[in-house]
Simulated assay, not measured.
Amino acid sequence: MVVLTKMSIEASAPRPPRIRRSPEAARENILAAAEAILVEQGPQALKLADVAKAAGVVHANVIHHFGSIAGVETALMERMIRQLAEKIIAGFDGEGATPGFGARALFDAFEAKGAARLAAWLELTGEGRRMTLVREVVDAVVQTRLAREVVADREAVVDVILLSIILAVGVGLFGPTLSDLLGRPPERARELALEMIQDRISDRV
């Protein structure tokens, strides 16, 4: 008579097949899981164990690809920046683009997906200066058709981008809350910030 214990049953149970991914796909899987946690719970919830569990991998896998949870945070911010840059650059090089397109795209990005909170979190934890990708993105935007046509001076373009990012992050973090506290509609902070950016662009046209 064979006695099946709980341990023997679990040992004999078929295990789910291991998913083999390329290094790029493995990184993307981990970052997608981290982004889901970021959106739902905020950057303070980005813990190594939770990211690994959400991605369906072991801790060592996350460490192998990113070194630490700080590496995940930085890579996640870079991923968001790249996605935003691709959208802005495509829009600026397309027909019918307007000067305010890039600013609106920035505000959309920082008001959604927890990007503003992650940017602030990286700065507060001393990781902000690791975001060297921002310079590459700015250089790419400066070279777009719209940027060259609307504001020929490179330094003026960079100033507009700097102003846009600072205002977009601020609105993403505090806009609706402060608007409500001051008796304004939740979108009022965004409207005022976009007006300020548009005025800056108009002065340079």
Rank of each mutant, 00 (worst) to 15 (best):
H65C: 13
R21C: 05
T74A: 15
G94V: 12
P176M: 06
E195T: 07
I88M: 11
I161T: 12
R117A: 11
E78I: 05
E86M: 04
H59Y: 12
V205G: 06
A45L: 07
R130C: 07
L46N: 03
G102T: 08
P186R: 12
V51L: 06
L118Y: 04
V58I: 13
A85V: 02
A168T: 00
I201H: 05
E40T: 04
V58E: 11
T74W: 04
D153L: 15
D159V: 03
A34M: 01
A193V: 00
R117D: 05
N61C: 09
V142L: 14
V51M: 09
A49N: 08
L84E: 01
L46V: 08
H64L: 03
D199H: 09
G100A: 11
A52K: 02
A33Y: 03
A116D: 02
R79C: 07
L124Y: 03
V58M: 12
A49H: 13
E149Q: 12
S68W: 01
T5E: 03
P17L: 14
I37D: 11
T74G: 02
G170L: 00
N61K: 07
V2Y: 08
D50R: 11
F107T: 01
A75L: 07
L163Y: 05
V158Q: 13
S179H: 01
E127K: 14
A32V: 10
L167P: 02
L4V: 07
L182K: 09
A33M: 07
G126D: 03
A168C: 05
V137G: 09
R117M: 10
L146F: 07
G102C: 14
I166A: 14
P185H: 01
S164R: 05
P23D: 07
G114H: 10
V72I: 03
P17C: 08
F107M: 01
D50Q: 08
G128P: 03
V158T: 02
E111R: 13
P17V: 12
I63G: 06
I89Q: 00
A52F: 07
A105W: 02
T5P: 01
L173V: 04
A36K: 14
A25Y: 04
W121Q: 13
L46K: 04
T177C: 09
L122A: 02
D93N: 14
S8E: 15
A105I: 02
G67H: 06
A70D: 13
T144Q: 01
P43N: 09
G42K: 11
G170T: 09
R27A: 05
D203E: 12
I165G: 03
A45E: 05
V39H: 06
G71L: 10
I81C: 09
A75K: 09
A70E: 10
A103F: 07
A140R: 13
G172Y: 01
G96P: 03
G183H: 00
S12Q: 13
A119I: 06
V138F: 11
A11L: 10
K113T: 08
N29S: 11
A152C: 08
I161M: 15
A140G: 01
S12C: 11
L122K: 04
A70Q: 13
V134R: 10
M1I: 01
K47S: 03
G126S: 07
A32Y: 10
S202G: 03
F174S: 13
P186D: 08
V205R: 15
A32C: 09
I161R: 12
G102P: 02
E123Y: 07
K6F: 05
R104Q: 10
I88G: 00
T5M: 00
R154A: 11
E73Q: 12
